[in-house]
């Protein structure tokens, strides 16, 4: 594409924004290598006197992996269910001549506008009655249900773009609709599912309200809530808090380093229609 000259003000804005984006993270990471005393005696922006990793040792030995494990458990099960159920629903909406499907699609899309807070008290009381309150299992139902409308919407668009001739050929060859879905539509929908898988993984990995409401004990909670326990322990110890924050953010950032473009694409696929 031809290069067009850019107004110098826009360059200034670009660099200012880069600085603004990175500065908080730099503060977080550099503070995590300091000692508690250092944060009071030396300027905030000063580099750590020596890269002190005691904070990391303390956090890692303090049950941090339990949070990571719970997050992996909840997010992997939820995202698998979201993708499978959404693809199945998308197939019905995009392909099957089933009359009630159209109004149902509209109703499911109305779910996009529902704020989670309106469901919080009933879901909390339901979870207690089911006996799964304060376990990671409590999160899976609400996570899947609230992710379905958007994922179904995007995947339905995706299935619509698969040439119909493929289904027709399968039908002529005697494939049942279910077989057509599993052998033809599902494999061809995988790029769309990959994008929505990324989007939902990022969203659920960072989810807060349900996790905060439906779990209470430290060894049942997911990663975004790790900070709560450590905050109690280290309330005045800024470097320790910054260490927890850095380690909380780290898994996503590492994944991002390996799949930058894919992740941006996936996040935007989910966000654009949201």
């Amino acid at each position: 594409m031809a290069r067009v000259k850019i107004h110098p003000l826009i360059w200034v804005l670009a660099l200012v924004w880069l600085l603004l984006t990175l500065l908080p993270f730099w503060f977080m990471v550099s503070s995590s290598f300091k000692t508690a005393l250092e944060t009071y005696t030396r300027p905030v922006w000063a580099l750590p006197l020596s890269p002190n990793i005691d904070n990391y040792k303390a956090v890692l030995s303090g049950g941090f992996f339990r949070y990571v494990f719970n997050s992996l458990l909840v997010v992997s099960i939820s995202v698998t269910l979201i993708l499978l159920l959404s693809a199945m629903a998308a197939f019905v909406f995009a392909r099957l001549p089933y009359r009630p499907a159209k109004p149902l699609f509209g109703l499911i899309m109305a779910g996009l506008a529902v704020p989670v807070h309106v469901t919080l008290i009933p879901v909390y009381s339901l979870t207690t009655r089911l006996g799964i309150y304060d376990t990671p299992w409590a999160l899976i139902g609400p996570y899947v249900a609230f992710s379905l409308p958007l994922t179904i919407f995007i995947l339905t668009e995706f299935v619509r773009q698969i040439p119909r001739e493929l289904d027709d050929a399968a039908r002529v060859d005697g494939c049942s609709p279910a077989r057509t879905f599993f052998s033809i539509i599902l494999p061809l929908t995988s790029p769309g599912m990959a994008s929505m898988g990324i989007y939902n993984t990022v969203m659920l990995w960072n989810e807060f309200v349900f996790a905060f409401t439906l779990t209470a004990s430290p060894n049942q909670r997911t990663l975004p809530l790790a900070i709560w326990e450590f905050q109690g322990q280290y309330s005045a110890n800024v470097p320790a808090i910054m260490t927890v924050l850095t380690m909380t953010a780290l898994p996503m950032i590492v994944v991002y380093i390996f799949g930058q473009e894919r992740i941006i694409k996936g996040m935007m696929a989910g966000a654009l229609k949201g």
């Binding site: 880069l18 975004p224 924050l245 909380t248 953010a249 991002y256 930058q260 941006i264």
Partner: peptide, 17 residues
């Protein structure tokens, strides 16, 4: 790539930070 980073971090972590 750099601008995108805040979108990957949880609002909870951003809040504490």
């Amino acid at each position: 790539l750099a601008y995108f980073i805040p979108l990957l971090v949880s609002s909870v972590a951003i809040g504490f930070l």
